[in-house]
Design a protein around this nucleic acid. Structure first.
Lengths: 200, 200
DNA sequence: ACTCATAACTGAGTGCAGTCAGAAAAAATT
DNA sequence: AATTTTTTCTGACTGCACTCAGTTATGAGT
């Protein structure tokens, strides 16, 4: 057993290093040009690895996007969760959770839409996809928690309503009809639907 | 100006004939093997046209699927509309509309999911895509009409609720989580959410 | 130090959707 | 009937995501 200068052996460290380089390269290129204008070759070159190596770390180009963006969505969710805490009105609180996610999604419209596409149609066995699903699940939990405050809504109903909110968000952000819509326009669209859902 | 044995000139007739051959070829191959196992080359060969010609009639492979399947969804919608007419309960009536669509979608799971994917992420400028969106719009109208019966729900709210039903349906059919789910399981999933939506 | 086993890497190669410059067919014009 | 214009067709070609057989790095065993 060799020294443990860091946690593990050289192999582990090299792997982590490569993953970091890949993540950084993909993040920068996707952010600057949008996923459709970037080739996997460019990413491999920028990360200074072979073409095939890239696909050991993310089995498809879509997985690569999930890898890069998951953490951003997790942060957005956390921001929304905190914002919602001090908002008594259920509708306003739900929208406070939704807003950072929509903002995150619309930072780059193409990337945002591909992210959603991968979530729904990608391979759920892949690790980054699973993480994306986890974040969606957490979003629904946070929404359900807000709806359950004060026990005006039962636990099971709150969960079902949270799923509905999730579906409404998804389509509002993904639909090609809303391609050119601003964050505020999308928020209005979602709010209109959630308002009807919560009206009772 | 030449004779008008049928409606128009030779060109028009040839074009229609080719479109028919393409549609038939694509329908058979997609139905038998699933869209992902069929190449555009095979379709072109079966329709007895050149590779490039295919893309004059449908600009992408996805458009080709929409071309083939749109009419099936339109028929499903019509069946559901009729079924719902004599069902007084709103929830049951909505589910009567939903069922044939889900059945249509699940005839071949892969094709069904790609159809949904194209609807949301495809190019809305393409003709077959527009038709698909029209069918979705009609579905929402039919649902809204059922919800508006007896004026228990206002017109604007009915429209918003119909959009929500649409979103819920979409995700229930498309989500990879439900890949292996049967029609009945998907129906239960949708019903649970619509029930909460309509509870008031 | 040396050998072997295993994990990680690599880039030439593959398959397929979609393009485009030129050919062919149909219609319009003379 | 001949010529020009317009529309439609075509398959060789391109670009790109992804694969895989062969190579190299790492670590374990002796």
């Amino acid at each position: 057993m060799p020294r443990a200068s860091q946690p593990a052996g050289r192999r582990e460290r090299n792997k982590q290093l490569k993953l970091d380089r890949i993540t950084a390269a993909a993040r920068e290129l996707f952010a600057e040009h949008g996923i459709d204008e970037v080739t996997t070759q460019q990413i491999a070159d920028k990360a200074d690895i072979g073409t095939g190596t890239l696909f050991l770390y993310a089995r498809t180009k879509g997985e690569l996007l999930l890898l890069v963006q998951n953490s951003l969505y997790a942060e957005a969710l956390e921001r929304g969760r905190v914002d919602a805490e001090n908002i008594p009105d259920a509708l306003d609180a739900v929208m406070a959770i939704v807003r950072p996610v929509v903002e995150c999604n619309r930072t780059q419209v193409d990337n945002g839409r591909v992210y959603l596409r991968e979530m729904v149609f990608g391979d759920p066995a892949e690790p980054h996809h699973r993480e994306a699903l986890t974040i969606t699940g957490q979003t629904e939990e946070v929404v359900a928690a807000v709806l359950g405050r004060g026990a005006r809504v039962g636990e099971a109903d709150a969960a079902a309503m949270a799923r509905i909110v999730s579906a409404v968000m998804f389509l509002a952000m993904a639909a090609s009809v809303n391609l050119a819509a601003s964050v505020d326009e999308i928020m209005r669209d979602i709010r209109g639907q959630v308002a009807v859902l919560l009206a009772r």
